[in-house]
Design a protein around this nucleic acid. Structure first.
Lengths: 219, 219
DNA sequence: CCGGCTACCTAACAAACGTTAGGCAGATCT
DNA sequence: AGATCTGCCTAACGTTTGTTAGGTAGCCGG
């Protein structure tokens, strides 16, 4: 009765709470937060509405849990790329590798976004209209991810002003995150889009297309 | 009592219906569709909830009206640019003007988006989760606008494959439309972002920044 | 065998929602 | 002056919602 949050130690009950979490993420994303009733949600996991209060103290807490997991997955993906470049040797070509570093992070962002779509997409579609309690709870994690990208762009585009870098970052995020609304999940498709975004972001679209044409070569 | 839809002929009452429309657009955008109650909305315009059924036959119809106006404004802005280039002479330099045509449309899109933010932003934030009836009603207008951009990109990027053009268009839309969530309205700011997006889209970010640096020149 | 814990269920609560029927003051038209 | 229409109000309806209190079957350590 005191704390429902953690049962005791390591024995994380993975069936009950986890099933609710996944179903909630999916339904929140498909139908929206308010449009999703706890009764429908409970039916998805074979429960009754009131039963879920054993695992989560409120509907808001459920949304917070979903969004926190989503953002954690994104942060992890970012750090994985950082670690990858760290072992590759710092004394590599610093300048010429800038576009490759950026490309790697773009790919990682898009992969993490689509591989865990149910959890991550909520940050794009329903964070904005989420209850204030929810937004405040998840904001630290979001800010952390944003800060990583801000730092990355500062290293990779040192000649741009801060204002321009901010706008470029937000524009890049917009281009990438909007893909959850139209891109059919599938590793191949995601990677192709990632290459296109990275290529276009760095070299633009005015010059001739890169050599590796995809699918049916128009050329 | 038979049909409330159209009063009679041209005498469109502009005070009542219009005030509801504006207030609804603002509240839908700020709080979301379901989160906005007709009672709160009515209070905004100094009415009672039931009174609004004189002007709109349902809450869904209200949202449809808001979204339709928003998309009409976007379409008009697009066509205005087309007309502008038409009078400028068709036999201009076709190839070299491609980037300028694109830049003009990007600026027009962003201006129309932010100048009528209350109406237009709904297509970004709440179309996705709107009731199916609403989405179906507004879809023709949206498709029309999309088709215009598809045609534009086909003329401006003839060497790219259809798949790539689609992805580039969706990416560009994502970058532009996401700005409603962070860009503080103001013609100067909007135009600066428009130039940055157009420049980055065409020439990329890898080369040195364009000569006209904004605000404090980092250079 | 027994007390307690886990994981669920049942039943009900108050509040809020979209929507409707009927009424009513004031302007406009005939 | 009477009729009609416009624009709004009041009051209520049925439904759905998040949430809670209390109960219960099964497992598990002692």
């Amino acid at each position: 009765m005191a704390a429902v949050s953690a049962p005791s130690g390591p024995p994380e009950t993975l069936s009950g709470r986890e099933r609710i979490l996944s179903a909630a993420a999916q339904r929140f994303l498909d139908a929206g937060y308010v449009e999703t009733s706890l009764r429908d949600l409970a039916a998805d996991v074979g429960m009754k509405a009131g039963s879920m209060y054993y695992h989560f103290e409120s509907k808001d807490a459920l949304l917070i849990a979903v969004l926190e997991r989503g953002m954690s997955l994104m942060v992890d993906a970012f750090e994985e790329v950082v670690d990858g470049f760290a072992v590759a040797g710092v004394d590599n070509a610093i300048e010429s590798a800038a576009d490759q570093r950026l490309a790697a992070h773009i790919t990682a962002h898009l992969r993490a976004l689509h591989d865990n779509r149910a959890f991550t997409a909520g940050h794009v579609t329903l964070f904005r209209t989420a209850p204030q309690v929810v937004r405040e709870a998840v904001l630290p994690l979001r800010d952390g991810y944003e800060a990583r990208w801000t730092a990355l762009l500062a290293e990779v585009l040192p000649d741009r002003s801060i204002d321009e870098r901010t706008m470029l970052r937000l524009g890049l995020f917009g281009a990438m995150n909007a893909s959850i609304e139209w891109l059919d999940t599938g590793r191949g498709t995601v990677d192709r889009f990632a290459r296109l975004v990275a290529d276009q972001f760095w070299r633009g679209v005015g010059s001739e297309p890169s050599e590796e044409s995809s699918g049916k070569g128009k050329r």
